[in-house]
Nucleic acid binder design. Structure first.
Length: 378
DNA sequence: TCTGGGGTCCTAGGACCC
DNA sequence: TCTGGGGTCCTAGGACCC
């Protein structure tokens, strides 16, 4: 639940299996689950790395289908999962919370909801009981701040939020929570986004494994992040017109002088060419850091993203800058021979740069690298 | 000593336009 | 001395999500 490992008592830590974050692994398993779901129903929105919305409209025996889907996902991927059904996205998310809680915390909701909870089939009176048993902070779209503010106004449960005066919610919290309120009442305000919208920005940032006093190393890190960001950009067939950088000293070090500089600049044109972005980042990073300070985190973000076809072209020149075909070749080489097989000198080229992440508990890439497959001896 | 890495939307206020 | 009424765009900050 996001608790730093050093806060966990040693006695408990010894009973745990500790893993560093491994987004390649999570992303691959997520894609496999998506494939299973998309094969089963026509409209699926991949909402996050571990959540999907499915349109169950027009499906005759949806209870049977979702129980089968739940079992199939677990059987084919090993990932335990739960399913919630509701007439709006907010109610479906709430149903999912019910399904999970009923399974994990006996007594929180009726046992019948464990694993799969169908709020859409409940009578209004029973739905009221479920909403009354759900703390307002568990509602999708209600975070820490609003949860506190709502409770200060005497609104503690999802039911109380649903039934609160509409004008008051609109005035005190804005249109976002007013929508959530209507969704709780069964009025759909959010559609199923089964076509993923284009990104508006792409960010690559890392906390360093240690404090970095060597500012050349921080600049190398920034250029490396720029190159990685461009790879992501090209994967999505987008170009960027502006780039920003930031760096940060160790915010947890109370003694240290803090410095959180950030800067942005326009690129020489809309581009996804790593060389142009890297050069701009290198420029931006000159006289960027404060002498003598150590930095703990840095990042690069790309802005003003667009599809090349949507750009207003120059009258006498191309719409985009950079060399598209060269980048295609670079990507192809790195795909074939592994990331980092070819790249820019300004990224440093050390096998273990001293700004690297701490990943001493990294799990193997079981599903994406032949070299990481377990070996069976006979 | 150790503390993640990404995203989105909404609103208010200021600059600027006619 | 009097000094409108309508817009847009941009930015910063704050909220939310996983």
């Amino acid at each position: 639940m996001g608790q730093p490992i050093h806060q966990v008592p040693a006695a408990i830590r010894r009973q745990l299996v500790i893993r560093s974050a491994n987004f390649t692994l999570y992303g691959d398993l997520s894609a496999r689950i998506n494939t299973i779901l998309r094969a089963a129903v026509p409209r699926v929105e991949s909402y996050s790395i571990d959540e999907c919305f499915l349109d169950l409209d027009g499906i005759r025996d949806r209870e049977a289908l979702v129980w089968e889907l739940r079992a199939r996902v677990e059987r084919w991927t090993g990932i335990p999962n739960g399913i919630g059904i509701g007439s709006t996205k907010t109610l479906a998310k709430l149903a999912n919370h019910v399904a999970k809680s009923a399974q994990r915390k006996p007594g929180s909701y009726p046992d019948a909801y464990a694993g799969v909870a169908d709020l859409a089939s409940l009578s209004p009176a029973v739905l009221v009981d479920v909403l009354a048993a759900t703390p307002v902070g568990e509602v999708w779209g209600v975070g820490r701040r609003w949860s506190d503010k709502l409770q200060a106004q005497g609104i503690h449960t999802a039911l109380q939020l649903r039934d609160a005066p509409r004008g008051q919610v609109l005035q005190d919290f804005g249109v976002t929570l007013a929508r959530t309120q209507r969704e709780l009442a069964g009025l759909a305000c959010m559609g199923l986004e089964d076509v993923e919208p284009d990104r508006q920005q792409i960010m690559v940032s890392r906390s360093f494994g240690a404090r970095v006093y060597d500012h050349d190393a921080v600049r190398e890190a920034l250029v490396s992040f720029a190159v990685r960001a461009c790879e992501k950009l090209r994967q999505r067939n987008l170009v960027a017109s502006a780039v920003g950088i930031f760096a940060s000293t160790d915010a947890f070090d109370r003694e240290a002088i803090q410095h959180h500089p950030q800067r942005a600049a326009n690129l020489p044109g809309a581009t996804s060419d790593s060389r142009l972005v890297a050069a701009t980042v290198a420029q931006l990073s000159r006289r960027f850091l404060k002498q003598g300070l150590a930095y703990k985190k840095a990042g690069v973000w790309l802005m003003d993203l667009a599809r090349p076809v949507d750009l207003q072209p120059e009258l006498f020149g191309p719409a985009t800058a950079g060399n598209e075909r060269l980048m295609e070749v670079v990507d192809a080489i790195n795909r074939r021979h592994g990331r980092g097989a070819i790249g820019l000198g300004a990224t440093g080229w050390q096998s273990t740069p001293h700004w690297g992440m701490r990943q001493e508990h990294l799990s193997p890439r079981f599903t994406t690298a032949f070299s990481d497959l377990p070996v069976a001896y006979c």
